[in-house]
């Protein structure tokens, strides 16, 4: 028997909104609104990635921009070689660029996963403030590397003139591209929901609360956390590739620590460890940016006030406030 908790109902309503709003925008011929929704969905995806490390694993990573950026640059590099008809590598074997989204996603996910493995393997030897600082340091290293890497635009970034393709769809049509992003978000949310209840999720969640106990039942908290960090990085990397395709532009900003901070803000606003926390957070962020950004360039002040209120008075984020304080259990 399925019992609906308030949180489940809230999540379903959120999914419905993410279908109905773009549908309305499409019928009303408001392509800009569809683009806003697409941006929210992609940023939500990045947040869902971070939430696996942060919410489930308790790993406060301030370096997730690294994976977002790697995903973006995977797209930019592959697509720029394809649009310039120059091979990516000639020796020892020929690798061409590509304009195929599925191939780009795969490369983005693999590259960001490998980066997360390397960064995580080193960072997870520390904890607390040191972990935050070392992840930040890795993010900054990649940021400055891309600034000084002239091959793909350096500081100026790099434009891709035509959006990459997906078999059977016209990705330049905003609603179709939105459909792709939404489908990926839904798929990843489904995966994240399974993960949280899986044996791995149970052990990771316990390791966040009491690493000692997890060790004494024969499970290494380090391996749990490293796995979580890699999965988390892969999802955020996928979001980076989509974000680059949305803008048809990549730049070192994707790697900046502000990006890491923004992804973390989505998670905190929506609700840490809540499945839909990052989705709600990203939607609120984009809504505020759109509504307040028109009034003032300093709209981040209002975002800051909201964040402050949530951290002080609503630790469960928006979802926690609306649906009850405890994270749902089976």
């Amino acid at each position: 028997m399925i019992t609906m908790t308030r949180e489940t109902l809230f999540n379903l309503a959120m999914m419905a909104a993410l279908i109905l709003f773009p549908l309305w925008a499409w019928l009303a011929d408001e392509p800009f609104m569809i683009t806003l929704a697409t941006k929210a969905v992609i940023l939500a995806l990045a947040g869902v990635g971070l939430n696996i490390a942060l919410g489930l694993g308790g790993l406060v990573s301030l370096g997730h921009a690294a994976f977002f950026g790697i995903g973006g640059y995977a797209m930019g590099i592959l697509a720029s070689h394809a649009q310039n008809y120059t091979p990516l590598i000639e020796t020892p074997f020929l690798i061409e660029g590509t304009k195929s989204m599925p191939v780009i996603w795969l490369v983005a996910v693999i590259c960001s996963g490998l980066a997360a493995l390397a960064i995580g393997a080193l960072s997870l030897r520390t904890s607390g403030v040191y972990f935050i600082m070392i992840t930040l340091a890795f993010g900054q290293m990649l940021f400055f590397f891309t600034i000084s890497w002239p091959a793909y635009g350096g500081e100026d970034g790099l434009s891709i003139y035509v959006r990459n393709g997906f078999p059977g769809l016209n990705t330049l049509d905003p609603i179709q591209f939105y459909g792709i992003c939404f489908a990926l978000l839904a798929l990843v949310l489904f995966f994240a929901a399974r993960l949280a209840r899986s044996p791995f999720g149970l052990a990771l969640n316990a390791a966040r609360q009491t690493a000692e106990r997890v060790e004494t039942v024969g499970i290494s908290p380090y391996k749990l956390r490293l796995t979580a960090f890699v999965v988390s990085g892969m999802i955020t990397g996928l979001a980076g590739a989509l974000f680059a395709d949305l803008n048809r532009f990549i730049s070192p900003t994707m790697f900046s620590w502000q990006t890491s901070g923004e992804i973390m803000i989505f998670v905190i606003i929506g609700g840490v460890a809540r499945l839909f926390g990052p989705v709600v957070g990203a939607v609120i962020f984009i809504a505020l940016e759109h509504l307040l950004g028109g009034l003032s360039d300093y709209w981040h002040i209002y975002l800051g006030v909201l964040l402050l209120l949530i951290v002080l008075f609503a630790r469960g984020g928006v979802i926690g406030t609306l649906t009850g304080r405890e994270v749902a259990h089976d």
Binding site: R194, R197, S198, P199, F200, L202, A206, V214, V217, I219
Partner: peptide, 20 residues
């Protein structure tokens, strides 16, 4: 308690089926 049983099973790295 399931965490203990999971440790004893030696297979904590399962991502799909629900632990409970």
């Amino acid at each position: 308690a399931v965490l203990g049983a999971l440790g004893a099973s030696g297979r904590p790295f399962r991502f799909w089926r629900a632990a409970l």
